[in-house]
Design a protein around this nucleic acid. Structure first.
Lengths: 155, 155
DNA sequence: CCAATAATGATAATCATTATCATTATGGTA
DNA sequence: TACCATAATGATAATGATTATCATTATTGG
């Protein structure tokens, strides 16, 4: 079965990224800079810790996997990255892009095609929840479907 | 941070559950029956494999964890259960209830409160996608937020 | 430059899940 | 009913991702 996953990206994103970094991370090390760099360079990609490690080692040669995990999780808990699980048994990380207020990816795992959605489909729901007193920080949406091509060919 | 998770439950659900079971599962064993029983009894709950094991052992005393995994994954791939990940590093399974065409759970992991949503918030999006040729089987939605109480008390 | 402390990397430990495989149970058939 | 082919089970080893540990290294403020 072809799986399409739509990941809704959150709304709230502090523009003062670096402030946050300096305040919460305390130290901007070579390793952390390398990890950040990778995430920025691969904006829009969903990288596993292992993939980040490989890419970041070009900048910080003997970077360890533990540091990658530490850095990614820290950045995720600060809202700079999103941490998502695609039902493959491991987490993937993605840059939370300040430019895109709210965007959605569609990944067709089956045929590899990527679709983009600009729809702000959850606005109504979120407004409702906010009215009820919730304060929404982020959301994730996954959709399982046959993509048009696969849908056609399955008769 | 308080986390609220909304799980959207899928639309498409074959009413001929048992037919499916008999055709696809080949054999209805004591162990599988025990697992199914647990899932039916705890309709609405999100159970880990371990939790299913404990509950099902009351009916099938020396049930093994491997069988639980096998059965749960099989039922999930047949659309009888949903398999979801709550960012805690393991999967949880839930009965796909035929009665409820589309419902949403809100689990407040922080304070434990449970909210229910009747909103069919994704209808518009899904209709749009169907119009474009997709065939949607299922969706999952997670929302991170402060619940009203926690939002109040965080100043 | 030094001291206090945070960060790192190597590696062991953990935890959930999957694979293996010998044993057991099942359903169909003679 | 007994037998056979085969599916299912359970115990356990293996795997893979993530986390914890800890000695060493790097950084910042004074």
């Amino acid at each position: 079965m072809i799986m399409i996953i739509i990941i809704g990206v959150k709304k709230e994103l502090d523009p003062k990224l670096l402030d946050k970094l300096e305040k919460a991370e305390y130290r901007i090390t070579r390793q952390r800079r390398a990890v950040m760099k990778v995430m920025y360079e691969q904006k829009g990609a969903h990288l596993s810790a292992e993939e980040v490690l490989v890419a970041a080692r070009e900048k910080a040669p003997n970077l360890g996997i533990a540091t990658v995990y530490r850095t990614l999780d820290r950045l995720a808990s600060m809202g700079i990255l999103y941490k998502t699980e695609f039902n493959e048994g491991k987490y993937r990380y993605e840059l939370a892009d300040a430019d895109l207020h709210q965007h959605h990816h569609i990944l067709c795992i089956g045929c590899g095609k990527i679709f983009e959605l600009e729809e702000r489909l959850l606005d109504t729901l979120e407004q409702q929840l906010e009215r009820e007193g919730f304060h929404i920080i982020n959301h994730q949406l996954k959709i399982l479907a046959y993509c048009p091509d696969c849908n056609k060919s399955r008769k």
